[in-house]
């Protein structure tokens, strides 16, 4: 099997499995909207307050929802031994891992974007924040999936791995959070968001080049 077709095979398999276990995809999404809608109950529904906290809440909740879904990249495959098969395949592990990360992003990262647009309406944010919210999520969520995959590979199969994974990953998400919320805030104030978008794009490129390697190395270590 050629490298490209192996990549496509892993991608197709993971997408099919994800669509078959739809609940696992939908639950983080429901969690996302649920947590974000808790805040108005706590701070009040005053429009100006919601306008201030809105972008931050939408982004922090997206970050939590992304963290919640990380476990599924490798966990089930580790349990049923198919990760072992991936490890033994002749094709480079980096590439097969990348396929899994891509599948994870398509299933768990991408759906966060329409949900965020709904939340944008829920928080009565101005239309000017729609476009930057969309772009920052489009640039930021792949970073979450890529970085998350490396750490999910490190913690796969460990007792209490879920909380440990959150503990390891959340500090690394801080730069994305800073630039993304900064961009949305700037747009709402009528300022340029180019700087923040460049930074997010740079983070994405960095994650894209390094994290699949780290994930493959981590899997090699964990599978012994």
């Amino acid at each position: 099997m050629s490298v490209a077709s192996a990549f496509m095979a892993v991608l197709r398999r993971d997408l099919l499995l994800g669509l078959r276990h739809r609940v696992e995809i939908i639950n983080p999404l429901v969690f996302y909207i649920l947590i974000a809608s808790l805040f108005p109950f706590a701070v009040g529904s005053d429009r100006s307050t919601l306008g201030i906290i809105g972008p931050a809440v939408i982004w922090v909740c997206a970050l939590l929802a992304a963290t919640l879904s990380l476990d599924r990249i490798f966990h089930a495959d580790f349990e049923d031994g198919s990760l072992e098969q991936l490890f033994l395949a002749r094709q480079p592990l980096v590439l097969l891992t990348s396929a899994k990360v891509l599948a994870h992003w398509l299933l768990c990262g991408l759906p966060l974007i329409p949900a965020a647009l709904a939340l944008n309406a829920l928080y009565q944010l101005p239309v000017t924040s729609l476009w930057p919210m969309l772009t920052t999520l489009l640039l930021g969520t792949p970073v979450f999936s890529l970085t998350g995959a490396a750490l999910a590979a490190l913690t796969v199969g460990l007792r209490g791995g879920g909380v440990l994974l959150a503990l390891l990953i959340l500090p690394l998400y801080i730069p994305v959070l800073i630039f993304a919320v900064g961009a949305v805030g700037n747009a709402m104030n009528g300022l340029s968001i180019a700087g923040e978008l460049y930074f997010l794009a740079a983070l994405l490129v960095l994650a894209l080049t390094l994290m699949p390697l780290a994930a493959a190395a981590a899997l090699r270590i964990r599978l012994g």
Binding site: L154, P171, L172, L210, A214, A218, I221
Partner: peptide, 12 residues
Amino acid sequence: AGAVLAVIGLIN
């Protein structure tokens, strides 16, 4: 595993 984590941390 700690080494991989530390390197990721160091880059970050």
